[in-house]
Write a protein that binds this DNA or RNA. Structure first.
Lengths: 193, 193
DNA sequence: CAAGTGTTATTACCAGGTTATAAGTTCTAT
DNA sequence: ATAGAACTTATAACCTGGTAATAACACTTG
C-alpha cells in the first residue's frame, strides 16, 4: 500500500491549493490535506512558501506598486526639457513594477502614459484633456531600459493641439504616438466633437 | 500656545501617511507623528482605519479576487468576466490618485491602461504584446466613477488579434479603443511589420 | 479648584506564525 | 525481524502586530 498520498503529491497539492487561494492559513491547509500543521510548516519551508501574512503583504504591495507607478507624479517619466506649446523631452526608467513578470517586457500602457503626459504637459493651461490618440509600438522595451520620449506640437487649431511623440531606447524608435489634446480651461464645450 | 499639532491635523496627517503607504505599522506611525502608539490606535479607531494586516489583506484580496482564471497576470481594473479569445469585462474604480488634482478628472492613460490590459488578457498566450492602438476619449471621467470596460476580439489574423474596447460610466460611452495585440509566444518574428 | 478632554501606559489576550527539540511512526535494507 | 533512516507529529518558548480594558497623567477651561 502506498500512503494515501506521497509527500510529492501532497506538496504539489499544497501548491495548487495556494495557487487558487493564497489566503489559507496553515490550519486550513492541514485540514484540507489531512496532515498536521507541523507537516504543513515543513512543506512550506521546503517549498520556500512564506507565511500567510507575508503572502498577503506581497500580493498587496505588488499590485499597489503598479498602480502607484502609474499614478505618481504629474508626468509619467522625468521631465528634462519643456518648451510650452512647442516641444519637450522626458525620460522614463523602466522598473520592475512596470514590466510583465514573465518576460520583463514593459507593459504598453506605460509608454502611452509617458507620451500622454508629455502631450498634456506641453499645453500651457489649467485644464487639458486628451481627446484621441493613435499609437504604435515598434520594439519591446525591457526592464532597466531608459525610454526617451520627444514630443512636438505639430499644429494648433483653436483649442486643439496636435502632438507627435517619438520614444527611443538606445536611439532606436520603440513607440510613436499622435495625440490630440484639448484645452478646456474656460470654454464650455468639453470634449464634444 | 496650541500643541505643536492639533488632533485634527494629526489625524489628517495620519490619513495622508497611510494613503501613500498603507503598510505602516502603528509604531512607525507613532514615530512619524511624534505621539505614542496608544494615540495612534485611538486615532485609527476614531477614523475607522483597520489594522495593518487587515489593510494588506483587503488590498491583496480585492485585486486578487476572480483573477484566478488569468493565472497571475495583473490587469489594470478588476476583471469581472473573461472568455479567452472572445470577450471580457473589467471595472476600474477611479481613486483620487488617478485624477488631475485640479479638476478631479481621470487622466487619460488610465482608460488606455484598462483597455490595453483587457486586450492583452484576452489572448490565451504567455507572451502578448501590444502592436498598435487607436483610441478616443468621449467624455471626462471623474473621481469615484466606476468605469466598465467591455472588450471584444473582433478578428484574428495569424498571431494578430484585433480587439475593440468600449468603456462606460453610467451606461454612457467615455472611451473607445481599437487595439492590435500580437501573440509572440513561440514565433521568432517580434513586432516587426 | 474641579471637571472634562486628550494622551499615555500597562496588562491581559489573540492569531498566525518561527525555531528548536523530542517523540512517535513508517519504510527500507540487511 | 529488526535496526536505522526518513518522515511526521507534538510541544514549548518566542515573535509581531495587533485588540480591549483599565488606570493614570497633562492641560485647558469654567
Amino acid at each position: 500500500m502506498e500512503p494515501r498520498q506521497s509527500r510529492q503529491e501532497r506538496r504539489s497539492a499544497l501548491q495548487d491549493l495556494l495557487r487558487d487561494d493564497p489566503f489559507l492559513t496553515d490550519w486550513q491547509l492541514a485540514d484540507e490535506l489531512k496532515v498536521s500543521v507541523a507537516t504543513i510548516r515543513l512543506d512550506r519551508m521546503a517549498l520556500d512558501i512564506p507565511e500567510l501574512r507575508e503572502r498577503a503583504r506581497t500580493i498587496a504591495a505588488s499590485t499597489y506598486a503598479e498602480v502607484r507607478a502609474l499614478q505618481g507624479e504629474e508626468v509619467v517619466g522625468e521631465l528634462i526639457e519643456l518648451n510650452l506649446g512647442q516641444n519637450g523631452t522626458s525620460v522614463l526608467r523602466v522598473t520592475d513594477q512596470m514590466v510583465f513578470a514573465r518576460n520583463q517586457i514593459l507593459r504598453g500602457h506605460f509608454l502611452f502614459a509617458q507620451g500622454n503626459s508629455m502631450a498634456v504637459a506641453l499645453v500651457d493651461s489649467d485644464i487639458v484633456l486628451t481627446k484621441s490618440a493613435d499609437v504604435r509600438f515598434y520594439q519591446p522595451v525591457y526592464l532597466d531600459d531608459r525610454v526617451v520620449a520627444k514630443a512636438t506640437v505639430t499644429s494648433i487649431q483653436g483649442n486643439r493641439y496636435y502632438v507627435s511623440v517619438n520614444s527611443f531606447v538606445h536611439d532606436e524608435v520603440v513607440f510613436r504616438g499622435e495625440f490630440v489634446v484639448v484645452d478646456v480651461s474656460d470654454k464650455g464645450g468639453v470634449l464634444h466633437d
